[in-house]
Amino acid sequence: MLKGHLDMIVLAALSPGPAHGYAVIESIRRLSGGGFDLPEGTVYPVLHRLEQAGLLSSRWTTAPSGRRRRVYALTGRGSRALARQRAVWERFSGAIGGLFRRKPA
């Protein structure tokens, strides 16, 4: 189930602002309260794929350690895609919540 929503999760993690891969993974872990425990390496192909789809942009910077670092940011298209996915998710979770709140007869 997590894999099916990985694109949305990564886009959401980048919504506060640009970040490099490690920071994106940390953000996902922190904001999900450790609920999303996936191999860290699986996030990078997703970042590349979303960039190819025009939902993210990237640029290389220099980290404080002196290493080259790739930083990703949401594009306008990415922000709109995230807003759409968020609306769909909120409708879906609201509907499921309504079903679960119903008391058994």
Partner: peptide
């Protein structure tokens, strides 16, 4: 160990 199996990750990059 946290990063994952290199073969599986390479396969995902290869699709992109």
């Amino acid at each position: 160990a946290n990063f994952g199996d290199p073969a599986a990750i390479a396969a995902q990059f290869a699709v992109a």
